[in-house]
Amino acid sequence: MFFKDFVLDKAEFAPATMMMPSTAAIVQELAQNPNAIGYIGLGYVRPTVAVLGIKADEAAPAVVASVEAVLDRTYSLARPLFFFVIGETKGDLKKFLDFVVSADGQKIVRDLGFVPIN
């Protein structure tokens, strides 16, 4: 949905697009098929796939995705991730959410190749 709204500007995917069941399957196909192009999360980037730079518009420079480029907003194709909870956050739920945004939690995010909050 994000890709369709943000990149395709609500246009349709090409009919020949292969819809893969998981990001891991996309990475696998990209590694095997020299003609393949796909989009994946930053944390899934492996040495078996080549990462391309993208331009926010015609004039902008091509930027390759990285944690730094997302944090300083030079890489435009990024989105935040939210937790949705019902009612008040307390008990174990609060502990979990506090951990996620804590330094320890954010270190895990960064170690897995994703972008921490700051």
């Binding site: 995917f13 009919p15 020949a16 697009t17 292969m18 819809m19 893969m20 069941p21 399957a25």
Partner: peptide
């Protein structure tokens, strides 16, 4: 079939193309 058939959403022209069965 979800993992192996390729997941193209249109009518395949031949069996050697990616495709997606109803279950997938």
């Amino acid at each position: 079939v979800l993992m192996v058939a390729g997941g193209r959403l249109t009518t395949p022209g031949s069996i050697f193309e990616p495709m997606r069965p109803i279950t997938a």
